[in-house]
């Protein structure tokens, strides 16, 4: 069916492209930064330390293992940010779920077990408990944000304080040790990395190709329009925060298994590193924009920084100062990119 309103042909459009253009994935620039950073450390390594930064499998492994835990929660945090929200509670939830999982993962011969009747359990129980607790916290976060309409920053800030409180209260701050070998296996070897990349891949696919992802972007870009388009915005908000909580729980479980002990202070500041990874990876704090691949690269960049400075024997205080600068530079670069795009 045509909607011609004239006998003559329509006028040539002013919007006809003058020159062809190809859209490059936005991650390419950040990937370039990552490679550039590695090469920089490589060069500095030869100059100051007299050895290679990259050609050291052990260092790379430690670096990647460290960042995998941040990465797991960054997968969830990225989604909340794309939806124009934030999750500040993730680090505390890691601490809380670490304690809960550890308390159910103690070996049968553990002295002073938290639950003497529940030792030597199949690892499925501590894992399930950790994941479910994370998920429950996420549901509460989501419910608060969706139905009481308080800002995500406030809701998750409150949860951040409370969850840390639960972690401390759980054993009065005592660490939980003597965990079963079968539970510890979850955090052994490359498993944390595999789990991180696995969840990143799953949610990458979910964001790009499923209805869940399309709705997440839509709500982040314009919640009012999303509502008028028939999306159940409240339910979707709960869903996204639920996944974020679940991933924090997963991180708590993986960390406990890797450390083979549960500590209440675990995950302190993880939420900020996770937000930093997302933002370095190009996720916009104003919502509607962001990709999982960017977050993975962002997490790796944070890892390279930490590992590179340690490699160069840079003082830990300087490391933090420079890391802060890099995060700010990433956001400035992103703002600049967005402004340029808007003026088109």
């Amino acid at each position: 069916m045509a909607t011609d309103i004239s006998s003559a042909s329509p006028p040539a459009s002013a919007e006809t492209p003058v020159a062809g253009r190809r859209r490059l994935p936005p991650e390419l620039s950040i990937l370039g930064v990552m490679i550039g950073m590695m090469l920089l450390f490589e060069a500095l390594g030869w100059i100051f330390v007299g050895q290679s930064f990259i050609a050291n499998p052990l260092r790379l492994k430690i670096m990647i293992l460290q960042e995998s835990e941040i990465g797991i929660i960054a997968v969830g945090v990225t989604q909340t940010i794309i939806m124009a929200g934030i999750d500040l509670s993730s680090g505390s939830v890691v601490g809380m779920t670490a304690m809960i999982a550890a308390s159910l993962a103690q070996a049968a011969d553990a002295p002073h077990a938290v639950y003497p009747g529940l030792t030597g359990l199949n690892p499925i129980f501590p894992v399930a408990a950790g994941l479910l607790c994370g998920l429950a916290v996420g549901v509460v976060n989501g419910w608060l944000i969706a139905y009481t309409k308080i800002p995500p920053f406030i809701a998750t800030l409150g949860m951040m304080v409370s969850a840390r409180g639960v972690a401390d209260w759980y054993t009065n701050g005592q660490p939980i040790g003597n965990l079963t070998d079968s539970f510890a296996d979850i955090g052994a070897g490359w498993w944390p990395v595999i789990i991180f990349l696995g969840v990143a891949f799953i949610f990458h696919i979910a964001l790009r190709y499923t209805r869940y992802g399309k709705f997440t972007y839509a709500i982040g870009a314009n919640p009012l329009a999303a509502r008028v388009s028939g999306i159940n915005v409240e339910r979707h908000i709960v869903l996204v925060y639920m996944f974020a909580g679940l991933l924090s729980g997963l991180c708590g479980v993986v960390h406990t298994a890797r450390a083979i002990s549960g500590q209440a202070g675990v995950g302190m500041g993880f939420e900020l590193d996770a937000i930093a990874a997302a933002v370095i990876g190009g996720t916009s704090l104003s919502g509607g924009v962001g990709r999982m691949t960017g977050t993975v690269i962002g997490a790796v960049i944070l890892g390279i920084l930490t590992s590179g400075f340690t490699f160069l024997n840079v003082d830990a205080h300087y490391q933090e100062i420079i890391k802060g600068g890099v995060i700010i530079a990433a956001v400035v670069a992103d703002q600049y990119r967005q402004r340029r795009r808007k003026s088109v």
């Binding site: 399309k214 709705f215 839509a218 870009a221 329009a225 999303a226 008028v228 924009v289």
Partner: peptide, 22 residues
């Protein structure tokens, strides 16, 4: 602008959003 467009998203995302629900 307020209740119609998802200004940051592309044309296709804007067009398909109501369809996806059903």
């Amino acid at each position: 602008k307020e209740t119609g467009c998802f200004l940051l998203l592309d044309i296709m995302a804007n067009m398909q959003i109501a369809l996806l629900r059903g």
